[in-house]
Simulated scan of single mutants.
Amino acid sequence: MKRLGLTLVAAFCLAASTFAAGNQPTTAKWEGNINVSKLSNYLKLSSTQTEEVANICDYFTEQMGRISNSTKKQDELLKNAVYGNLKLMKKTLTSEQYSKYATLLNITLQNKGIELK
C-alpha cells in the first residue's frame, strides 16, 4: 500500500511539473517569416494595402529578431514591437480586416509560446 501511495505521489508531481513547465511565459526566438501572400488572401487586401502590409511585416520580423538577440528588457521590447505592429496595421487595414489580423497575430504568438504581460 505504501508503494502504491508513493507511486501516485511521484506520478502527480511529474504531471504537475510538466504542466507548469509548459505554461511558463517565454520570449522564444521569432523564427517565422510572415507569408504576405497568404495574409493578403485571407484579409482580401487591395494592391496598395498589400505593399504596406509587406513593409510592416518586414519591419515586425526585423524587430522580433532584435528582441530574440537582446538580453535586457525583452518583455518591454516585445510589447512595443507587437503594439507598434498593431498600430501600423490599424492605419492600413479596414476595421474588419484589422479584427481578423489581430486575432491571427494573437493566435500566432500563443502558438509560438510568446506571452505579453
Rank of each mutant, 00 (worst) to 15 (best):
A11I: 15
A11C: 11
F12D: 03
C13A: 15
L14W: 09
L14Q: 09
A16T: 14
A16D: 11
A16K: 05
A16M: 10
S17Q: 09
S17C: 13
T18G: 14
T18S: 13
F19A: 15
F19T: 06
A20T: 11
A20F: 13
G22A: 04
N23D: 08
P25F: 01
T26D: 09
T26W: 07
T26H: 13
T26V: 13
T26C: 08
T26I: 04
T27K: 00
T27A: 04
K29R: 06
K29I: 09
K29G: 12
K29V: 09
W30Y: 13
W30N: 02
E31F: 04
G32R: 10
G32T: 13
G32A: 14
G32Q: 15
N35E: 08
V36G: 00
V36L: 06
V36T: 10
V36I: 14
S37R: 12
S37G: 02
S37E: 14
S37D: 15
K38A: 13
L39R: 01
L39E: 07
S40L: 03
S40V: 02
N41G: 12
Y42V: 06
L43D: 04
L45T: 15
L45F: 07
L45W: 03
S46V: 09
S46W: 05
S46R: 07
S46N: 14
S46H: 08
S46E: 14
S47M: 09
S47I: 09
T48M: 07
T48S: 15
Q49D: 07
T50I: 03
E51S: 14
E51A: 05
E51N: 14
E51H: 10
E52T: 07
E52C: 00
E52W: 01
V53K: 00
V53D: 00
A54K: 15
N55Y: 04
N55P: 00
I56G: 02
C57E: 08
C57D: 12
D58I: 06
T61Q: 14
Q63Y: 03
M64L: 01
G65D: 13
R66A: 05
R66H: 09
R66Q: 14
R66W: 06
I67L: 04
I67G: 01
S68R: 07
N69Y: 10
N69F: 06
N69T: 10
N69Q: 13
N69G: 08
S70I: 06
S70M: 03
S70P: 10
T71Y: 08
T71W: 04
K72W: 09
K72L: 14
K73W: 12
K73H: 10
K73E: 14
Q74V: 02
Q74H: 03
D75K: 10
D75S: 12
D75L: 06
E76N: 12
E76D: 11
L77V: 01
L78E: 03
L78Y: 05
L78I: 03
K79E: 15
K79Q: 13
K79W: 07
K79I: 04
N80V: 05
N80R: 04
A81H: 01
Y83L: 11
Y83P: 00
G84A: 01
G84E: 11
N85K: 05
K87P: 00
K87Y: 05
L88F: 06
M89I: 00
M89K: 04
M89G: 01
